[in-house]
């Protein structure tokens, strides 16, 4: 492990070579918007909200899956990045069916927060109103694909933390969808332990507890840090202490 020095938004910062640009930025209180990233899960670079510019490179890089290099000069908040981020949120909004007013997570939703952060006055693309299935067959939880942004947090937490691997993604492109086991009703899934982790990590109202009505569902995502730290360090604390 080596300590590297780089520049983010004109500020000299240092970080370890096995950390991501996102981790290093956050350690220095530099905010980068994210959606698919969640502390405690592996990073997949799916949502592209964390894109940053690196001087000398024409393409953009997702901060959550990009490693630092000595002398790297990074920008996280340029006009070009702001334009891209707004476009991403607009595409997410137009490709799903979001009616915040009647959604279980209204006012506690990471997609809403992002819409506010990018200043989304309106969506420039035509809304697609896709036909999406809702799965209410599980005894405690509901999957409403209308609200799903395909961040795959549920897939990863179920596989990496719970070890059940109930969720997967089927289909391609705009037809991608979350499926349980062999594309069967969630309630019939033999692998699901009903632990509820997927429900807690879902950034939107796509996964929620039964019996929740509009704006009632507030998710606690901190629990993951405890579990992951307990596993790796055998300590019941939110952040692992440095060895």
């Amino acid at each position: 492990m080596a300590i590297l020095t780089l520049t983010i938004n004109g500020e000299q910062v240092s970080g370890k070579d096995d950390e991501s640009l996102l981790q290093i930025a956050r350690q220095h209180d530099i905010h980068i918007p994210t959606l698919c990233h969640l502390d405690g899960l592996s990073d997949v670079g799916a949502c592209r909200l964390c894109l940053v510019e690196i001087e000398g490179q024409s393409k953009l890089f997702p901060a959550c899956t990009t490693k630092p290099q000595e002398g790297m000069v990074v920008h996280t908040d340029t006009e070009r990045l702001k334009r891209h981020r707004r476009t991403i949120v607009e595409l997410l909004a137009s490709e799903g069916n979001h009616q915040c007013a009647v959604c279980v997570v209204n006012n506690h939703c990471e997609l809403q927060d992002l819409a506010y952060e990018v200043g989304l006055q309106y969506v420039r693309f035509p809304y697609l109103y896709p036909k999406k299935e809702l799965d209410a067959t599980h005894k405690s939880f509901v999957l409403d694909r209308n609200r799903c942004v395909l961040c795959t947090r549920c897939v990863r937490v179920c596989h990496e933390v719970e070890g059940a691997h109930t969720w997967d993604i089927a289909g391609r492109g705009i037809d991608c969808t979350i499926i349980a086991d062999m594309n069967q009703p969630w309630g019939t899934s033999p692998s699901c332990t009903s632990c509820g982790k997927c429900v807690r990590v879902c950034p939107t109202g796509a996964l929620f507890e039964k019996g929740q009505t509009v704006a009632e569902m507030e998710k606690q995502r901190d629990f993951l840090k405890y579990i992951v730290t307990a596993r790796t360090k055998r300590e019941w604390v939110a952040e692992a202490t440095e060895e």
Binding site: A93, N97, H98, Q99, C100, A101, V102, Y122, V123, Y127, Y129, P130, K131, K132
Partner: peptide, 12 residues
């Protein structure tokens, strides 16, 4: 008016 919202839930 801005997003279609509840009125557009019938679009499926």
């Amino acid at each position: 008016a801005t997003t279609g919202n509840v009125t557009a839930m019938r679009n499926q």
